[in-house]
Write a protein that binds this DNA or RNA. Structure first.
Lengths: 220, 220
DNA sequence: AATGATGTACTTGTTGACAGTTTACAATGG
DNA sequence: CCATTGTAAACTGTCAACAAGTACATCATT
C-alpha cells in the first residue's frame, strides 16, 4: 500500500500549532493575538488563520473582546472549581457507563495500561500531565458514549489552561499514579456508587489543589 | 439614550440564520451545504460564510465529510440515548448546585415562571419546544456554574436535531408542563438525591420517546 | 497647562479571485 | 458492449487587497 500520504490543511496545522502554543504556556494568559502578526508568523493568509482562531475560541482557549480581538483565555479561581465539578459529573457518568459494558474487563485493562504509562514517565513533568489527561480522556472514550467524549473534550481546553496557570509543579500532586490505581481498582469491583464517589473526591481535591496554588501565586 | 443600535457582524447574522434553518428543519438532515450557493443566497462572501459554518460544525449541527464538505448532521437512534444520558448528568448537577445557593428560593421562582410560560403556549408546537428548552437552559444558568452552562450549550444543537428528526408531535409528550411542575416542586423541597432521580427519569423517558418515534418513522 | 480637534496607524470585517482536486460524463478504442 | 482515457464542471483551500472602525499621538487654542 502506497497510500499513506496524509494531506493536512494549513488551517489544521495552524490550529494544532496555536493550541499547543497556548496550552504549553508560550502564549501567556490574557495575551492579545493579532491576526496579521500571527498570519505572517505562520506564513499563511489571514483568512486561513481566522478559521483556526475561531475554533480555538469555541474550544475555550481564546475569548473575544468587545471589538472582536481574540486573546488567550484567563481563568479565575472560582471558575476552576466550577469546571472541575462538571468534569467530575461527566467522568462519573463515564465510569458508571463503562461498568455496564459486557466487555468491561477488557476496557478496564486498557485503562490500567494508561496508569502503567503514568508510572513510567515520573521524570518528565509535561509527560505526566499528558498521560494523566490521556487516562481521563480514555475513561470517557471507553464508556462507549460518543456524546460524552465530545462533551468532555470541550472542557479539555479550560482544564489545560487551569493546570498551566496554577503551575505544573502544583498540578502534579493530583496526578500521583497511586490515586489512579485506586480508580481502576474501584472500577474493577464494579460498584457504581462507590466509583462515582471516588471520582468526585479525586476531582474535588484536584480543584482544591489548583486553587490554593493559584492563591499562593497571587501572594508571592 | 440613542445608543441602542446593535451592530452585528455579517458572520453572526449568517450564523443565526443558518442555525435556525437547520434546527427548524428547513435544511434536512444529511443535506450537503455548498459554500458558493449559500454565500450567494445570503448575499455574503464565501469567507464570511465559512466562519459561520465552521462554528456550526463545532456546535454539532454540521459534520465535515472526507473532502471538507459540510452537511447537516444526522443523528442515529443510539446517539439519542447517549446524548440524553449526558444531558441528564449535567442537569442533575445543575439542580444539585442550584439547591446549594443561598438565594435558592428566588432562583426556583424564576424556574417556576418558565413553567407558567409553558402552560400558556400549549397551542403553538414550536413555542412549546422553545419554552421547554428555555426551562432546561435556565436550570443550568441558575445553577451559577458558568462552565456547566457552556457545556450544556454544546449539547443543545444535537438535542434540537434529535427532536426535529423524531418529529415535533412525538417530542411534545416529553414536554407536558405537569412534568416540569414536578421538577420545580422537587427542587423546592431541596432533597438533592431525589431531584437527581427525578431529572434522570425525566430524561430517560424523553430519550425513549424520541427513539420509539424514530423507529415508527423508519417503519412507516 | 489643560482641553479639544485632527489626522494617522493599527486591527478587524469583508470581499473577489485564483489554484488544486475530485466527480461526472462523454468520447474513443478494443 | 465494456473498459479506458480525456475533458469539463463543481467545490473547497488559500490568498491578497479593500473598507471601516478605534485608539493614540500630535497640535492648536484658550
Amino acid at each position: 500500500m502506497i497510500r499513506n500520504l496524509q494531506r493536512t490543511t494549513l488551517r489544521d496545522q495552524c490550529l494544532n500549532a496555536l493550541r499547543s502554543a497556548i496550552t504549553s504556556g508560550q502564549l501567556p494568559t490574557g495575551h492579545h493575538l493579532v491576526e496579521t502578526e500571527l498570519a505572517e508568523a505562520f506564513g499563511v493568509s489571514r483568512g486561513t488563520l481566522r478559521e483556526a482562531m475561531r475554533r480555538l475560541e469555541q474550544e475555550g482557549l481564546l475569548v473575544a473582546g468587545s471589538r472582536g480581538q481574540l486573546s488567550v483565555r484567563h481563568i479565575e479561581e472560582s471558575e476552576i472549581h466550577d469546571i472541575y465539578r462538571v468534569r467530575a459529573a461527566l467522568e462519573a457518568l463515564a465510569a458508571r457507563t463503562l461498568c455496564e459494558q459486557p466487555d468491561r474487563d477488557e476496557r478496564i485493562a486498557t485503562l490500567a495500561s494508561h496508569v502503567r504509562r503514568m508510572h513510567e514517565v515520573q521524570e518528565d513533568l509535561i509527560e505526566q500531565i499528558e498521560t494523566d489527561l490521556n487516562f481521563h480522556r480514555a475513561l470517557c472514550e471507553l464508556s462507549g458514549n460518543q456524546a460524552l467524549l465530545t462533551t468532555w473534550l470541550t472542557l479539555e481546553g479550560p482544564i489545560r489552561i487551569s493546570i498551566m496557570h496554577a503551575g505544573l509543579e502544583h498540578a502534579l500532586h493530583n496526578m500521583a499514579a497511586d490515586r489512579h490505581d485506586l480508580i481502576v481498582n474501584t472500577l474493577a469491583q464494579g460498584d457504581a456508587t462507590r466509583i462515582e464517589q471516588v471520582l468526585m473526591e479525586h476531582m474535588e481535591e484536584a480543584a482544591r489543589r489548583l486553587m490554593t496554588a493559584l492563591e499562593q501565586r497571587a501572594e508571592g
